[in-house]
Design a protein around this nucleic acid. Sequence first.
DNA 1: AGCACAATACTCCATATGGATAAGATTTAA
DNA 2: TTAAATCTTATCCATATGGAGTATTGTGCT
Lengths: 220, 220
Amino acid sequence: MIHIAIVDDKANNRKIITDKISGNRFFSISFQAVDGADFLEQMAGLLPAAQPDIVLMDLEMPEIDGVTAIATASALYPAVKFVVLTIFDDDDKIFKAIKAGACGYLLKEESGAVIADMLLSLWEGGAGPISPSIAYKILQMVQKPAVDITSDAATNLFMLTEREKEILQLLSQGLEYKEIGQQIFISPNTVKKHCINIYQKLHVNSKAQALRIAYKKGLL
Amino acid sequence: MIHIAIVDDKANNRKIITDKISGNRFFSISFQAVDGADFLEQMAGLLPAAQPDIVLMDLEMPEIDGVTAIATASALYPAVKFVVLTIFDDDDKIFKAIKAGACGYLLKEESGAVIADMLLSLWEGGAGPISPSIAYKILQMVQKPAVDITSDAATNLFMLTEREKEILQLLSQGLEYKEIGQQIFISPNTVKKHCINIYQKLHVNSKAQALRIAYKKGLL
DNA sequence: AGCACAATACTCCATATGGATAAGATTTAA
DNA sequence: TTAAATCTTATCCATATGGAGTATTGTGCT
């Protein structure tokens, strides 16, 4: 049994997706979320054994968009597969989602049978599920790698301020609050405040988790 | 003034090196160490401002060999340049040292003037100092990248046991002691004990520092 | 002038972490 | 069959960390 989570802000879309895949006896709906923030919170509350196998993620959502949610969650939950399931096939978003850690990119217009087949093959260790029209765009992107990956996926993805990135950099060197404070001439209290702000932006709650995301996503 | 640290287990070698470079007015000897463990301890006791600019490291040493020392220290002190200075030009050791973070590889047979020139150019932002006979070997290695980096530099470098590597893996996911204990069905006390053992083997004293080394050296 | 935001700094508090130390169980090597 | 590692569990203790507040300052934007 493959456990699926669905993240989409529109209730109608969630129902359509649910109907499409619940007809297949190999799938079961693990949980649903209305946006990236909701998804991350629900994941944080789950025991590892209760985590979904595959997450179907829309990109256009309030609060936290799908790309950011995938970037965060793919670092925190390496065993979980993330598949983008959206209406649009925007070049930029495809690229960002793949960089963020998505292993598939499906269009909602695909039939339930096609989606089910692709999810099954993904779970059986096959290739990531990609709609034909998406595959062609990815081919084009690889042929002319013009996009600046560092500024997109890394620098701007988490909206960290310069000071916060500086703190994160020092954190990664294994320094404590007081040591960081001495390095950049601020109070250790302030360092701590920056750290907590960083954690909130990254949707984590510890140094190790923040560093994991930073390393995985190339911030460091 | 460029501050140099010298790490060599034989007092005679240290004297020879000291004589070779102390004749140049641009260099000053920061400190000397008799093996990797001694070096790491002395570094840990230094304020950042007192750290050497360049470390000349022998490879054949008791306690902790040069490759391990470079691997650990290059992760902990990213600003410090490490140059291997040895008698032998063994392929395997060259590869391991470069992977570990050495930015240069000099043979002791080089004259003091040559060594001084190369260290100066390194400090001025130039290329890493490499003896001609070493350069040729590196060229050959790049042409046929056959060596297995994971087993050499990563798996065996730190002598971590299987259990300890497993713990480190879980640590990197941002889990706490109790969470790790639940995952692998041992007491959180035991997890903590493993962590402390890991720290001692890596010559660090915090989660963040251990993870930094693990990430940098490809253990994760 | 008013507003939002970043950076700074502080307090209180519960929990997590690292160090030191001890010790029994198991496995592996000599 | 000792001896050496490894894995396991535990306690005591000092310090570090993370969360939730509050508040001041400066900067840029409207």
